[in-house]
């Protein structure tokens, strides 16, 4: 919140006997500043706020829950070690996405010789089940599982762009910043991913 925000209104000064705000009430910039000073609790709160988005990316990019959890864990430890280098030029979420994406790329390189078809890609223990009739739910699950398998067969760079765009809703510029690829490259990878997935889903039906 900058002082130039037009929505400002006058507010009374500090009152006596105020309790300190709980960490969960603190704004992100304050938590980042404290984490940069070495405050573990503030870092833990940041990790708590971002972990769902990061595991989503890691799981969809890597296809395996155990790999995704390892990537998330390593990414958060990386984030702690590097947080002093975060300058606020990009959003903190962008910075975190970049770290987890780098981790995922490293895992994909390591796993390259054997690209497993994920057995655990159906909604399961860590997924909150959808609603609707059991028949429709089973059909949706089967369709989603087919999409997950098709996604797993894409080249890693295409998969990463597709996940960041379609599942996280990020723009080309932000994806370019996260992946280090040009916006033209991001656009091309995303399009190839989309057409390949559409092709696979056509065959599935």
């Amino acid at each position: 919140m900058q002082a130039t925000d037009p929505a400002y209104r006058a507010h009374p000064g500090p009152g006596p006997g105020r309790l300190a705000p709980a960490r969960a009430e603190l704004d992100e910039q304050t938590l980042v500043a404290r984490a940069q000073d070495g405050d573990v609790h503030s870092f833990a709160e940041l990790a708590r706020r971002h972990q769902d988005a990061l595991i989503r990316v890691a799981f969809r990019v890597l296809g395996q829950r155990s790999d995704a959890e390892d990537a998330l864990q390593d990414a958060l430890i990386d984030a702690w070690r590097k947080i002093g280098t975060f300058r606020g030029d990009a959003a903190f979420s962008t910075w975190m996405y970049r770290i987890v994406t780098n981790r995922c790329t490293a895992v994909m390189r390591r796993n390259r010789p054997t690209v497993p078809l994920p057995d655990d890609d159906a909604p399961g223990a860590t997924l909150v089940a959808g609603s609707g009739s059991p028949e429709r739910a089973a059909e949706v699950d089967a369709e989603l599982a087919a999409l997950s398998r098709a996604l797993a067969d894409l080249p890693g760079d295409q998969r990463t762009c597709w996940v960041l765009r379609e599942l996280e809703g990020l723009g080309y510029a932000e994806i370019s910043h996260i992946t280090g690829a040009s916006e033209t490259a991001v656009r091309g990878r995303l399009h190839r991913a989309r057409t390949a997935l559409a092709e696979r889903m056509r065959a599935w039906r």
Partner: peptide, 10 residues
């Protein structure tokens, strides 16, 4: 639907 699925790490 895939985007709406919630994932939480343990």
């Amino acid at each position: 639907r895939m985007a709406a699925e919630q994932l939480r790490p343990p």
